[in-house]
């Protein structure tokens, strides 16, 4: 095989790869339909934390709140709430919402997974 023919073949392969990548990443990428909550966009994650904080105002059930927050990943619940609280402060959440998050944060800082609350 002549070198020019080899170059032509390599160029064809490279073009094919480029076309394949373009099709697979841009035109028809893999569609995710069964995602987990830990890859939710930040505003949705914060809203989930806010919902948990609102629900906590109704039942004051730290165990249930921690379980709800666990949907968002394996981080400690207090860290998740702290991140949400920072987001809320940066994005003009209402005082009531921030107060709810603050209450939840306090509860999560004292929460122990075995159900005991530190004094």
């Amino acid at each position: 095989m002549s070198s020019s023919k080899l170059i032509t073949l390599l160029m064809a392969i490279a073009t094919g790869i480029a076309l394949g990548l373009y099709y697979g990443w841009v035109i028809d990428p893999v569609e995710y339909t069964d995602v987990t909550p830990n890859i939710l966009r930040e505003d949705y994650r914060v809203d989930l934390v806010l919902m948990t904080a609102e629900a906590y105002q109704g039942d004051f059930d730290t165990e249930a709140a921690a379980r709800r927050l666990a949907l968002l990943g394996s981080e400690p619940p207090a860290s998740i709430v702290t991140s949400a609280l920072n987001y809320a402060n940066r994005n003009g959440f209402t005082q009531e919402e921030i107060a709810d998050l603050q209450t939840l944060l306090t509860a999560m800082q004292t929460y122990q997974p075995d159900g005991n609350i530190n004094p």
Binding site: A12, A14, L19, G24, R41, E42
Partner: peptide, 29 residues
């Protein structure tokens, strides 16, 4: 050669390194 290249490209983009979602919406849960 073009087809082989395209196949390799698709295999990489769909299987080896597919598009990863980091900002998913709840509708995809």
């Amino acid at each position: 050669a073009l087809l082989i290249g395209a196949g390799l490209g698709l295999a990489y983009s769909w299987q080896i390194s597919p598009v990863t979602y980091v900002d998913a919406a709840p509708a995809l849960l």
